[in-house]
Design a protein around this nucleic acid. Structure first.
Length: 421
DNA sequence: TCTGGGGTCCTAGGACCC
DNA sequence: TCTGGGGTCCTAGGACCC
């Protein structure tokens, strides 16, 4: 008997996952990209973060640096795009709105996937999955794949298999049939089994998901972790991860970037951190939240000798959501970890220990009369939606954001909205 | 020359307390 | 001054996810 784990089989849940999401977004606005190899690049055009089926077939790997496959671009006519997250975020919102028609309590798991509880749905669930696909495609132009089973881990597996075999939708509810599919899934493809655990399992003769499903509980608990034990129970059809409360506050909010060039000066680095803080704090205030701790980190290139990287955390009694007040903490932290003579390639600000701004614990010594004034100022700043720069943000404008091939912001900026002629 | 960004959760070990 | 065990809390780091 395991504390906290029941043995009840779960009700059906669907995982809807967009196919090659960023690439599909680009294709919606340029149908000529269909059937051609397309790749979307990360910030600074550093590496591949989305690949069309044709690009995968050319051997371009996820997160592979651009310079390693750049020579393939011309001969194969690969279309390359800088990431356009404003567009992808907007398209994601549209897809999720369609999914809510099918299940009001969807759980948005990432920008391109969501879980749909299907307990109330009667009839043929596989047909229902296909209906979801058609509707999403019709409303947004984004192709999706649907996996349905009794736990989120199995729904993930069903989705993976459906993508692999180009089925569009796969429904795994019968245990014997599910086992036959699981025998085909290598450990590394199971949700929750990463590189380390994959290698560990393979070295001990665990070659597929069915073997892991049948592994003894105490052995899993002892040699892997409680996380993996939950994964194993989920493979058996027993839910151990529930639908997450969407109204809950995030635990942390981060803004981090790699730089297009090395940054050495303290003031320049401070200016970059200030701009990261401004973005993170704006996102936090949008949730009506405040942070009780701030972390900053700075790193040199990990690919060069003489690496230096460091981080520091500052605690704020009572919490804060006011950018200048958070900035004062960031300045102190930078003094602690900055080392001259280093070419910094990456830095970031993380707002941590996030609480609701309305009922945050009060610091007895805080001057409450200033609160209302600060709040009004921040509201005014946020209304300007990022068009205001704090004085300390102005340094190093060229260090962030090389984007050579960005598509237009089709859905989020009026001047880019497609004209129908 | 060129190598992403934003999260969550667990675990081990140290500090501290009784 | 010496001795000990056990609990809790915090933090840094690791593993994993998309």
């Amino acid at each position: 008997m395991l504390f906290g784990l029941s043995s009840e089989k779960g009700a059906p849940v669907a995982l809807v996952d967009c196919n090659n999401f960023y690439v599909s977004c680009e294709r919606v606005f340029d149908p000529r990209l269909r059937g051609r190899p397309v790749v979307v690049l990360s910030n600074n055009d550093g590496c591949a973060i989305a690949r069309s089926r044709e690009a995968k077939a050319l051997g371009i790997r996820m997160a592979q640096p651009f310079f390693e496959w750049q020579k393939l671009v011309a001969p194969h006519g690969i279309r390359v795009f800088s990431a356009n997250f404003a567009l992808y975020g907007d398209m994601s919102w549209r897809v999720m709105e369609v999914l809510r028609e099918f299940a009001p309590d969807i759980e948005i798991y990432s920008i391109d996937e969501a879980f749909l509880p299907l307990a109330g749905v009667t009839g043929d669930l596989e047909a229902y999955g296909h209906k979801i696909r058609q509707r999403v495609y019709q409303c947004t132009g984004i192709p999706v794949t649907v996996g349905i089973s009794r736990t989120r881990t199995l729904a993930k597996a069903a989705n993976h298999l459906a993508k692999d075999k180009a089925l569009g939708c796969l429904c795994l509810l019968d245990e014997a049939a599910t086992d036959r599919w699981l025998a085909d899934i290598p450990p590394g493809e199971i949700w929750g089994i990463g590189r380390k655990k994959r290698d560990w399992l393979l070295a001990r003769g665990y070659l597929n998901a069915l073997q892991l499903k049948n592994a003894p509980d105490d052995w899993v608990r002892r040699n892997l972790s409680v996380m993996t034990l939950r994964t194993v129970h989920e493979l058996r059809g027993i839910p151990c991860s529930s639908i997450v409360d969407e109204s809950a506050l995030q635990g942390s909010i981060a803004t981090t970037r790699s730089f297009a060039r090395g940054v050495t000066g303290k003031d320049e680095l401070g200016g970059l951190l200030a701009s990261f803080l401004a973005v993170a704090a704006r996102r936090m205030r949008a949730q009506g939240a405040a942070a009780r701790a701030v972390q900053i980190f700075v790193q040199a290139s990990p690919f060069k000798p003489g690496y230096y990287g460091n981080s520091a955390v500052g605690v704020i009694a009572g919490g804060a959501d006011h950018t200048p007040r958070l900035m004062a903490v960031v300045r102190v932290l930078l003094e602690r970890i900055y080392r001259p003579g280093i070419a910094y390639k990456r830095a970031g600000v993380v707002l941590m220990d996030i609480v609701s701004a309305g009922n945050r614990a009060d610091d007895l010594f805080r001057e409450r009369q200033n609160d209302a004034r600060e709040a009004r100022l921040m509201k005014a700043v946020d209304r300007l939606d990022g068009r205001v720069l704090w004085a300390s943000e102005m340094a190093a404008p060229d260090a962030v954001g090389k984007q050579s091939w960005r598509s237009m912001k089709f859905t989020t900026r009026w001047q880019d909205v497609l004209a129908v002629v």
